[in-house]
Computed example of a mutant assay.
Amino acid sequence: MPEVIFNGPAGRIEGRFQPAKVRNAPIALILHPHPQFGGTMNNQIAYQLYYMFAKRGFAVLRFNFRGVGRSQGAFDHGAGELSDAASALDWVQTIHPDARSCWIAGFSFGAWIGMQLLMRRPEIEGFISIAPPANLNDFSFLAPCPSSGLIIHGDIDKVVPIKDVQTLVDKLKTQKGIVIDQRIIEGANHFFEGKVDELLANCEQYVDMRLAANAESA
């Protein structure tokens, strides 16, 4: 798990990078929760997502947004963090220029940033949005959402009530050409306390399903 430092728009960005063993392996970018509420790339869920993709042969990067850990800069309410994520994806693509596709996985604040990046980068073919903060942030930019993905959340989330996520999912499901897979973890709060294994099992199953479908159509 090599530690990496690369240049971002606000200075150096600190990350952890797992290179792929084959040249055309896909890329996965992992985005951590809210920096002002203790979110870092070492968040348990971000850490587990990183290893989930690495085990499947992806080139994987997780990193600290500006102002977190050894990443330079200061919190920028999402605009700067989106630029950080774009720079992070650029950096991985310089290491793996032959990558055949890209995935993005974000938790809470990271899910909001990830879905904005999705709108800007057509090479992103799949996403995992964990507890997307649909009541706290504006998701109206998903018009239309360009890629299929998984939205997964807990049914006792007090930070982001289930009804707000449901409204977002219902809106996305009306779009043609993409498939939104929604999963609800029973008894899970916003941080999936005691439910991380179940959360990861759902994410693994979804990624494996998509990879198998891609292999069949190749």
Rank of each mutant, 00 (worst) to 15 (best):
G114D: 10
Q166E: 14
S129Y: 05
L168Q: 02
F141H: 13
F109Q: 04
E81N: 13
E81M: 08
I162V: 12
Q182V: 09
I178Q: 05
Q182E: 15
M119V: 04
Q166C: 06
A86L: 15
R100G: 13
R121M: 00
H77C: 11
G154H: 08
F127Y: 13
G110Y: 01
G114V: 11
D170S: 15
R121Y: 00
Q93H: 10
E123V: 02
L168F: 04
I130R: 11
I128F: 09
D76T: 07
C102A: 11
I104V: 15
S129N: 10
L142Q: 11
G78F: 05
P132R: 12
D76N: 14
L172M: 12
D157F: 07
P144G: 13
D138I: 01
P97A: 06
A99P: 00
V179H: 13
H96C: 09
K171N: 08
K163Q: 10
K171P: 02
V160L: 01
K173V: 03
L136R: 13
S87N: 14
I152R: 14
E125S: 11
F107C: 11
V165G: 03
D155Q: 09
H77Y: 12
S148K: 13
L142W: 07
M115E: 15
Q166T: 14
L168I: 06
F107P: 12
R121L: 00
G80Y: 01
D155L: 03
K176H: 09
V165Y: 02
A99H: 01
G114N: 09
R100N: 11
I104N: 02
A85S: 11
H153M: 08
S108L: 07
I124C: 05
I151E: 07
D76I: 06
F109T: 03
Q116W: 10
P97E: 01
S87G: 12
R100P: 08
L118C: 03
I152N: 04
N137F: 12
A134S: 11
N135G: 02
S147A: 15
A88W: 00
P133D: 08
R120Y: 03
I95Y: 06
E123T: 06
S129A: 15
A85Q: 07
I180K: 01
S83R: 14
K158T: 14
E125N: 09
T94C: 03
A88D: 03
A143N: 15
S101P: 02
I95H: 12
V159E: 09
K171M: 09
E125F: 01
V159N: 04
S101V: 01
T167S: 14
H96M: 08
Q175K: 07
G78P: 08
D90C: 00
T94E: 10
A111V: 07
K163Y: 05
D84T: 08
P146C: 00
S140G: 08
G78Q: 06
L142R: 10
L142H: 10
K176R: 09
S148P: 02
W103E: 01
L172W: 07
T174D: 03
A79P: 08
R100Y: 09
D76K: 10
I130Y: 06
I178N: 05
A79V: 13
K163G: 04
M119P: 13
V165K: 06
A88Q: 02
D84Q: 13
D181A: 12
H153W: 13
E125C: 08
